Computed example of a mutant assay.
Amino acid sequence: MRESTVGKPYEEILEEAYERFEAAEDFTVSIEEEFALLDPETLDLVNRFEEVQAAARGTALEPNLVGELIASEVEVKTGKQASFAEVPAALAERRAQLAALVDPLGLALGATGTHPWASWRDQRIIDTPHYRRNDELLGYVVWRNNTFGVHTHVAIRGADRAVRVASAVRNWLPELLAVSASSPFHEGVDTTLHSARTQVFTRFFPRCGVPDALPSWAAYADYVRFLYATGSVDEPTQLWWSVRPHLSFPTVEIRICDAQPDVAEAQSLVALMVSLTARCARAIDEGEPLPDHPHRLVEENTWRAIRYGLSGELIDLERGDVLPARARVERLLEWVQPVAEEIGAAPWLRLPERNAAERQIARHAEGASFEEIYAEQVGLTVPAG
């Protein structure tokens, strides 16, 4: 479970975080994937996390399995990987371990950004200090957050450098979201969105979505001090930005992406996120100019990614041109390619013919029910063999 830092002096939190960043080893990676716990017959969400946690005790999965807000959800982590080359196998292994754990319990796993028909009213908040605190602070906001994502942590050496990398990565959050969109259906509704998850999460939670660009660790630390001094937060994880320098790990964490039903697409998406983070770090090291687009313009593209995903258009904020989202992502793939080759991610970089949202929307247009469509996505979640 996540350990609460409520009551810990914020200056101590900032000092320890700074020291960790200064001593970090570049480009180690850890991935977190969130999964729905399902009745295998009905594919309804079921509140059984505590049983899954108990079953994991004493297994290889125990240190890499945590709760994530609701009792019908479970998160697994790859753990720290020395390089990206180890990540794809670790992702597949964790999914297989989790499937082997839940199958004897009579459970299945789902990995789309939202469950297509489950109601938030039927989900229970897990009983941990961290999530009890979020429940107290946020109430309805946290109750409604029945969403599933994939988070990527990339270690960055140097506190100033980490803040600058996060500020650079924010410019491409819409492209990452467009690739990952997997949640067109929510609470029994065809939302017409490609990522209902992002609309639910980033429009409900405070201190969420696209952050402002910050020039230095000092600027970031000053903001954190302001939040603590004004009683706005009482632990550092309450900055829920879509990309953030993490205050518990020396990483830049990207949090914008929907969960991925297909493990191969999860591997490819993670390769892009890690490559982008490393590419931004290399650009900073070499003095290459990086964009610094205003929050309002990145948000404009974020909305386009929420609404239309890879099927729509994104704005080239340098030129003001409007391009197909796929063309924008293809340009991004070209830009990160040299560093992707350096870190071993290049073989995994690929743009799917249709992402998970597009597949589901197409099937619905053909007349398939939510149940049929979700069953197809659930069938992709665990690698065969």
Rank of each mutant, 00 (worst) to 15 (best):
R2F: 13
S4N: 10
S4D: 10
G7Y: 10
K8P: 05
E11S: 12
E11G: 15
I13M: 09
R20Q: 11
V29Y: 04
E32W: 06
E34V: 00
E34R: 01
A36W: 05
L43R: 09
D44V: 07
A54Q: 15
G58I: 12
L61D: 13
N64L: 15
S72K: 05
V76Q: 02
G79W: 00
S83V: 08
S83R: 12
A85N: 04
E86N: 04
V87R: 00
A89K: 05
A92P: 02
A92V: 05
A96F: 12
Q97V: 11
L105T: 14
L105C: 14
L107C: 13
G110V: 00
H115G: 00
D122S: 12
Q123D: 06
Q123V: 07
R132E: 08
V141L: 15
W143R: 15
G149C: 05
T152M: 04
T152Q: 03
V154I: 05
A155N: 13
R157W: 04
R161Y: 00
A162R: 01
A166P: 07
S167G: 02
A168T: 10
L173V: 03
E175I: 06
A178M: 02
S183L: 06
F185V: 00
H186C: 11
D190S: 07
T191Y: 09
R207W: 10
G209E: 05
D212T: 12
P215M: 04
W217I: 02
Y220W: 12
Y223P: 03
V224Q: 09
L227H: 08
G231W: 04
V233H: 11
D234G: 13
E235M: 15
T237D: 09
T237S: 14
W241N: 07
R244K: 15
P245H: 05
T251M: 06
T251G: 07
C257Y: 04
D258Q: 02
Q260S: 08
S268R: 07
A271V: 02
M273F: 05
V274S: 01
S275C: 02
S275N: 02
I284V: 07
G287I: 13
G287K: 13
L290P: 08
D292C: 13
P294Q: 08
H295W: 14
L297C: 08
V298F: 03
W303A: 06
G309H: 08
L314W: 03
E318I: 11
D321C: 10
D321H: 14
P324S: 10
R331C: 08
W335I: 12
P338Y: 11
E341W: 09
A345S: 06
E353I: 11
R354M: 15
I361T: 10
A362D: 12
G367F: 02
E376K: 11
Q377E: 13
V382N: 11
